[in-house]
């Protein structure tokens, strides 16, 4: 009886222990027994450090895990994802593999093609992996930390090289020159500060003027808007067309007037030439008169002639008076 009891207890212990171990293992592996899941296959040239069990995420939310990683002909690697049955794939999906942390954990991200990060390498991989057949999504591997670190290491090497060259170039004389330069820069910065203070005051004034100018412009624009509105209303009544016709007519008349003025100007020029000729001749005549040449010169310049003429005029006046008084003395009218 005791032996049978021992057997039962031993069997129970072993079975319970096995069950505990299996359950904990399944729990840690997140295995879902009896749950239908949807499968998605993507193909890559390289899968980085993605392994079976790596997370599959959609927009950062866990949607499943990597179920298998298999080598395929033609240098391809197929990654089969096991997704929750309720998950809806994004439109035009692609699969991107990348590091999810700095500790070597990688994940597969299902993302729309339009949301793929910009980069020639990724686009090239997606273009190459497209066309794998029905149900096989294109995939690409994002640059991992190691690659970025390699680039950073290269940059650090260049910086070290530059620093070494700077160290060679930076001797005592260079240091003295640098100190002098720093002092100069200090003085320059002080001058600059003063200038800036002055200019800032000027700028304040300018800004006030600009503000006022802007206000004026605003008012002018308002007035212009009103004018435009008036023009618009005037246009609608046909007044502008009438004004334009009047203006055209006036322009024609102005052109005719200008032609007449032009002709008058030509005539005046000719008249001027004639006048100048007349004036020249008059001037020569007057010169001769002034010089006492000719009859008129003699008359103008000889006082005796003036006096004789004056006495002649007086005698002539007396004669005329006498003639009026005694016409028969001078006029004898006979018939036959």
């Amino acid at each position: 009886m005791k032996k049978r009891s021992n057997d039962f207890l031993l069997g129970l212990t072993i079975l319970l222990s096995l069950a505990l171990i299996i359950l904990v293992t399944l729990f840690l592996q997140e295995t879902e027994l009896g749950t239908r899941r949807q499968k998605v296959v993507a193909r890559f040239r390289d899968v980085g450090q993605v392994t079976v069990g790596s997370l599959a995420v959609i927009r950062g939310v866990k949607a499943g895990s990597v179920e298998a990683v298999e080598l395929e002909p033609g240098g391809w690697v197929h990654v089969r994802l096991s997704l929750d049955k309720d998950v809806t794939l994004p439109p035009d999906p692609v699969v991107l593999l990348g590091a999810s942390s700095l500790f070597g954990e990688w994940q597969a991200s299902l993302t729309p093609r339009r949301s793929v990060p910009a980069g020639a390498e990724v686009a090239l991989q997606l273009a190459e992996s497209a066309g794998g057949g029905t149900g096989i999504l294109p995939g690409a591997v994002l640059p991992d930390v190691a690659q970025l670190t390699t680039v950073a290491g290269s940059i650090a090497g260049d910086v070290a090289s530059v620093a070494e060259r700077v160290q060679v170039a930076f001797n005592d004389s260079a240091a003295r020159e640098l100190r002098a330069s720093i002092r100069n820069v200090n003085n320059l910065s002080a001058e600059l500060a003063r200038t800036v203070r002055v200019q800032s005051r000027n700028l304040d004034t300018v800004s006030v003027n600009v503000r006022e100018g802007a206000a004026s412009l605003a008012r002018a624009s308002t007035a212009f808007a009103r004018s435009v509105a008036r023009i618009d209303s005037a246009t609608s009544k046909g007044e502008v067309q009438a004004i334009m016709r009047d203006v055209a007519r006036t322009a024609t008349q102005a052109r005719d007037a200008a032609e007449r003025i032009n002709r008058m100007t030509l005539s005046l020029e000719r008249t001027e030439v004639s006048l100048r000729s007349v004036m020249f001749r008059a001037d020569s005549v007057l010169l001769k008169v002034h010089q006492g040449q000719g009859t008129l010169g003699l008359m103008v310049n000889d006082p005796g002639l003036y006096r004789n003429s004056d006495s002649l005029m007086m005698e002539l006046r007396d004669l005329i008076a006498d003639l009026k008084k005694n016409p028969k003395r001078y006029i004898r009218l006979t018939i036959f």
């Binding site: 212990t13 072993i14 222990s17 096995l18 505990l20 171990i21 904990v24």
Partner: peptide
């Protein structure tokens, strides 16, 4: 068996 139980209990 003992070690398996110990693993789970330790975890």
């Amino acid at each position: 068996v003992v070690v398996g139980v110990a693993m789970m209990v330790g975890l």
